[in-house]
Design a protein around this nucleic acid. Structure first.
Lengths: 202, 202
DNA sequence: GTCTATAATTTGATAGAC
DNA sequence: GTCTATCAAATTATAGAC
């Protein structure tokens, strides 16, 4: 192997690659993987499609890197929250506020959520993406644990933890999608509205 | 065997078109509009792609008919609920139970929800679909009216009606998507869980 | 009614000019 | 580094055999 040359090769092109990632994320979200043309991404980045192959080997590689970003960063955020020393309900309040803040802003977050939704539904994806999804730690598992914790502490409503978690994540993902579809004209709910799904009234 | 009447032939043609619709709805949902190949639909229906053109003029026509179905049937269901003589909260309880029942079953409902989600996000759609979306009455408008009604009657929590409506619909749509992604292994929440978003505790 | 063969177009990827 | 020209493969839609 020649790790040294590969590393140098990548470092040289990192800046442009970042620019391409950003454009590609939005194009993939709006069109889906298979429907996204390499020329669409190139146009969104203001370069020719030929030049794009100077920075990426293929359409698959761009997509795979994006998915890698999405899975690792979301898993890390959740793991970090889970490790905080606080009552479960506070963990959930904190993460909900964070997620909604980012989804509601102009950042890439909403697009990452929708990217993962598309992947979970899609039946024909590159093998490389399938591999990542298999090894990705599921946010749902972490969330169900926190919910169960909150139930024991008497702050979260009774009921099947997976059903509660699904309802909560469905709302989060749905809002991310609405945000992409309707932009900043969307009336964006307060974290408290979503937390009513889980929180026990006192 | 006796020769078939014209009506029998017409009936056979209608049946085949229904079969193609059903197959196409699932393929479009799993792959998106632009990424769906005519041969994918044909394969899902167990026919050759040449034969498909015997029943439909183009890929666009199949998709457009599906969108037409989705918009009219969902609008009708909501309008019907809105016209019922009952407190607003009961209307919402009824429609939520209905929607979740259908999404959770093996019917086409979940796919129709996701189809509309994809359309709302997608940037490149056939002109014919764009036309339908422009004239389609928005479910959101009907829902916000019912929610406002429920607030006046003291059964629904205070707060911006559009934000509440968005949170509620986000959860509904999110669950439809989860249902497609995970099939009947999904832990499907009770209507009561979703209604906690809107319902005032007493 | 149903299929296979094929035309016309599009698109992912490469090669080579500047 | 960047672009344009081009190849090879895939895809929509049509034509024609059975």
């Amino acid at each position: 192997m020649a790790p040294k040359t590969q590393e140098q090769y990548r470092h040289m092109k990192d800046e442009m690659r970042e620019k391409i990632f950003s454009g590609a994320l939005r194009v993939f979200s709006h069109r889906g993987y298979a429907a996204t043309r390499i020329s669409d991404i190139a146009k969104a980045c203001g370069i020719s499609h030929g030049l794009l192959y100077h920075y990426f080997a293929s359409k698959d590689e761009i997509f795979t890197e994006l998915v890698k970003n999405a899975t690792t960063s979301s898993a890390n955020a959740l793991l970090h929250t889970a490790s905080i020393e606080a009552p479960a309900i506070q963990k959930i309040e904190w993460i909900t506020a964070e997620i909604l803040k980012y989804i509601g802003s102009d950042s890439d977050s909403a697009y990452y959520f929708f990217l993962m939704v598309q992947i979970s539904v899609s039946e024909s994806l590159p093998e490389s993406v399938m591999e990542i999804m298999k090894t990705a730690s599921e946010p749902n598992n972490i969330m169900t644990r926190i919910i169960a914790e909150g139930q024991q502490q008497g702050d979260i409503v009774e009921g099947n933890v997976e059903e509660l978690s699904n309802a909560y994540w469905a709302a989060i993902n749905g809002l991310a999608i609405f945000r992409i579809a309707y932009g900043d004209t969307l009336a964006f709910p307060d974290p408290a509205v979503l937390l009513r799904i889980l929180k026990k009234e006192k």
